[in-house]
């Protein structure tokens, strides 16, 4: 986070100085950047946080050995979490539910929305596989009672069942439910719930740090011309446009 505050401080300094746009050359800028001390351990923690949250267990393990950074979570639980996520991504929702329940029975018992979305995904998979009768029975037995408990669930259920009414589902108003993106959405919802149950933040810190960088640069653009980072993947400093 310290990087962000440094940019903010610079911003404040520049704001105090002049009303006309100040030009900062690449040399000046790099000199200032060199004065900023960032601890390597902090950078490593940031990387580890990303690997753990996103579930790259092998990479996290390697990184731990190479950098000596300890993850803030038991790496074995990542494997379990990834197995659940993968099961949903592949459409094996029932399998995913059982895995979540093995991991921590509390998650689906205390999170009705997530439970409904998983059951809804199960229904979508049945419809995708053309198992119409089974789908109808499943909707009646498992999903209808949830719809009675919650109005917004009922609406979602109606939308899902509507899939059955169309000949060409790829070209119908609710077709996006069959899209792979729906699976990914459900998968990431489960992933987030598992992380939360493990007292871990559900989003990695790195992306929000990059968002802050972009925000800070946009603020700075109004006050000064400076070597901007345009390509985040290479982080090259561009010469200030004058």
């Amino acid at each position: 986070m310290s990087l962000f505050w440094i940019v903010i401080r610079q911003l404040a300094e520049i704001e105090a100085m002049a009303t006309s746009k100040k030009v900062i050359t690449k040399e000046e800028w790099e000199k200032k950047l060199n004065d900023v001390k960032i601890r390597k351990e902090d950078m490593n923690k940031l990387v580890m946080n990303f690997l753990v949250t996103e579930g790259y267990v092998d990479a996290a393990e390697k990184f731990r050995m190479e950098s000596g950074t300890e993850p803030d979570i038991d790496l074995a639980t990542i494997t379990d979490r990834m197995a659940v996520k993968k099961a949903v991504q592949c459409g094996n929702v029932e399998d995913a539910i059982e895995k979540v329940n093995d991991l921590n029975p509390e998650i689906l018992d205390t999170n009705p929305q997530l439970f409904f979305h998983l059951q809804q995904q199960r229904l979508i998979e049945l419809i995708r596989n053309g198992k119409v009768e089974e789908a109808l029975e499943f909707a009646q037995e498992e999903l209808a009672p949830r719809g009675e408990e919650n109005q917004s669930f009922l609406e979602e259920l109606e939308k899902t069942v509507a899939l059955l009414a169309f000949e060409d589902v790829s070209n119908c108003p609710v077709g996006e439910l069959l899209d792979i993106s729906q699976r990914l959405k459900t998968a990431s919802e489960v992933n987030a719930a598992i992380l939360t149950s493990q007292s871990h933040e559900k989003d990695p810190k790195l992306p929000s740090l990059l968002k802050m960088l972009i925000w800070a640069q946009n603020q700075l653009d109004e006050k000064a011309a400076y070597p901007r980072i345009n390509d985040l993947s290479t982080a090259t400093l561009e010469d200030p446009a004058i």
């Binding site: 053309g130 198992k131 009768e133 089974e134 029975e137 037995e141 000949e167």
Partner: peptide
């Protein structure tokens, strides 16, 4: 959409 007649019992009642 193809239909199937296999009613499964994967979500059994008590």
């Amino acid at each position: 959409m193809p239909t199937s007649a296999t009613a499964s019992s994967s979500y059994r009642r008590a």
